[in-house]
């Protein structure tokens, strides 16, 4: 397996930009966001986390699904390409450079949802044009709990993964044929690893287990949650419901949340318009409102309980995919200071 020196990465990105669009973490208001770059040095691989996850690239906050027009008769047109990062460049592929391990796990969760459970042409069209280059985290942030969720390492879901083995070297793990092709397309940027680098890699991975792993695990969570639903620790939900502001932020920043609302927007003329989908959140008051105004989850307590169940029970049971990857974004963003790992620990009685 090869190796890449840190100072060569911006140059590699510059080269890639000739062929691909590149989207990477860039600074914004003292935080980071995934954004299209025009120069390699814009990509900041030392980022801690991004406000919104890379999910927005395949499943944008707002996406036109259909446009319609009424002249003589009503005409519908699917708007497949709308909102894709490289709309102006036709079918250009794009590289997402610098995705953390937890977010790669999250993309696998979304793949399951949007490619298997409910195949979604809008998602698939963008996903099919993407290449993912992961990058390792050297230290977990205080808000991360990938250690609990077991997501600080990743074995698939990327084309290349850069595991940092010291200040200025990354060990390159190949995850797909596309990844292999990248290596041979840009041979000048990589070098062969030596016995010494392999030794470093082993050491780094071992240290990682020590730094990241948590004594708490998610084993048994679904069963425990089964018992918690109404009583046992019913006060957990009451307490959370009283604190929660219902701002929806936790779902909106979550890399695995996939709920959306579908709305029509008609032009003033009444002759044309579009149907779009917009991210939704089960913590918003009208998420479970049905025709006639009945709300299946009328209280904040019922809504926050539902979110936790969806993340930690329903998704796991439904084919073993993770509903939460421990990325910590909800912990950082929640104005009420509600922390997913605290909830997990409480349910587990730790």
């Amino acid at each position: 397996m090869p190796l890449i020196k840190k100072q060569k990465i911006p140059l590699l990105v510059d080269k890639m930009l000739k062929k691909f669009d590149v989207i990477g973490p860039v600074p914004k208001d003292e935080k980071y966001v995934f954004s299209k770059v025009s120069r390699g040095e814009e990509v900041f691989l030392g980022y801690d986390t991004s406000i919104l996850p890379p999910k927005k690239i395949f499943f944008p906050q707002e996406e036109t699904l259909i446009t319609f027009k009424k002249d003589e008769q009503l005409e519908f047109k699917p708007a497949l390409e709308d909102g894709t990062p490289s709309k102006t460049d036709g079918d250009r592929k794009f590289v997402i450079f610098g995705v953390h391990a937890c977010d790669i796990h999250a993309i696998l969760t979304l793949d399951k949802q949007f490619m298997e459970v409910y195949p979604d042409p809008y998602y698939i069209s963008k996903r099919a044009r993407s290449l993912i280059i992961g990058v390792s985290c050297r230290e977990p942030k205080e808000t991360c709990f990938c250690g609990i969720m077991g997501t600080y390492t990743v074995e698939k879901g990327f084309d290349l993964f850069l595991e940092q083995i010291d200040e200025d070297e990354f060990y390159v793990i190949v995850g797909s044929d596309e990844g292999r092709k990248l290596l041979s397309a840009y041979p000048d940027f990589f070098e062969a690893s030596t016995e010494e680098t392999l030794e470093k890699l082993r050491k780094v991975l071992k240290e990682k287990d020590e730094k990241f792993a948590d004594s708490v695990s998610i084993t048994g969570l679904p069963t425990l949650l089964e018992q918690e639903f109404d009583s046992v620790n019913g006060e957990i939900w009451e307490e959370l419901g009283e604190k929660c502001l219902g701002c929806g932020t936790c779902c909106l920043v979550c890399p695995t949340c996939f709920c959306f609302n579908v709305v029509d927007k008609v032009e003033l003329s009444g002759k044309e318009g579009l149907t779009k989908r917009v991210w939704d959140s089960c913590l918003l008051a009208d998420f479970a409102v049905i025709a006639g105004g009945f709300n299946f989850r009328p209280t904040q307590t019922s809504r926050i309980r539902y979110r936790i169940y969806h993340k930690l029970k329903y998704e796991l049971e439904r084919g073993g995919i993770l509903g939460c990857v421990g990325c910590g974004r909800c912990n950082i963003a929640c104005p009420a200071g509600i922390k997913m790992q605290d909830v997990i620990k409480k349910i587990k009685g730790e």
Binding site: I51, Q61, E62, L245, T249, L252, V266, G270, A285
Partner: peptide
């Protein structure tokens, strides 16, 4: 006005500014 013109009850939003803030990816 568009809603009224096409005979639909205009639907107000039932959520907070935070939703729009997060969708636009502003720092909190």
């Amino acid at each position: 006005l568009t809603s009224l013109l096409i005979g639909k009850t205009p639907e107000p939003k039932h959520y907070s500014v935070c939703v729009e803030c997060k969708l636009a990816e502003y720092a909190c």
